[in-house]
């Protein structure tokens, strides 16, 4: 079998990847495999110090693997595992695909969860192709979410020992309860 990348040398390194029950295989020769791993190492070596991103990403990634198979961006195909290795996301849509993990990570890096700086103008051009919309379960949580439902999900998360998720839910519930108190009629 010839190497999938250079199509010249015999393949000696075989990689198998399982994404959503779909198995894909990559066969590489020694040279191409080495290049690929150096490429990844260099990209990571040059990356910013992410304040423990690697270790942290491992924990997040491991949790995700157990719960829902391989996490992968629906638009560009980058897996969370790839991101963990190279320290770079694949496209703007990755922010939707990995929103849960990135929410936690961004808070850890910046100590904040919301952008308050400049925004793009309302007259800004739209992307040529419409980005694939988030699935029904992936929609970002907003304040219109029912408080009771959140509490149920919190219990669920604690039961499953998904503590990152639980912490996020807890904060969200606190926030909602606080805003209810100051604005009893609801928004």
């Amino acid at each position: 079998m010839l190497c999938n990348l250079c199509q010249k040398n015999p393949a000696t390194v075989h990689l198998t990847e399982i994404v959503d029950d779909q198995m894909s295989e990559l066969h590489l020769c020694d040279d191409c495999a080495r290049k690929k791993s150096i490429q990844m190492e260099q990209q990571f070596g040059l990356s910013d110090l992410l304040g423990g991103l690697v270790e942290y990403g491992k924990q997040l990634g491991a949790g995700a693997d157990k719960a829902q198979g391989v996490l992968q961006c629906s638009a560009c195909g980058l897996t969370y595992e790839d991101f963990r290795k190279i320290g770079r996301l694949g496209c703007s849509e990755c922010y939707t695909s990995f929103s849960k993990q990135l929410g936690v990570l961004l808070k850890r890096i910046h100590g904040a969860t919301h952008h308050v700086g400049k925004a793009i103008p309302t007259t800004a051009p739209q992307a040529s192709q419409a980005p694939p919309g988030p699935g029904p379960g992936k929609r970002p949580r907003t304040k219109t979410v029912d408080l009771e439902e959140l509490k149920v999900r919190l219990q669920e998360a604690i039961r499953k020992e998904e503590f990152e998720e639980a912490a996020q839910l807890r904060d969200l519930i606190k926030e909602l309860e606080k805003s209810k108190k100051t604005n009893p009629k609801g928004t």
Partner: peptide, 16 residues
Amino acid sequence: KPEWGFLTACPTNTGT
């Protein structure tokens, strides 16, 4: 993204 601002390859730059 209104919530996270300008989306960048590295999350250390996300936001502004």
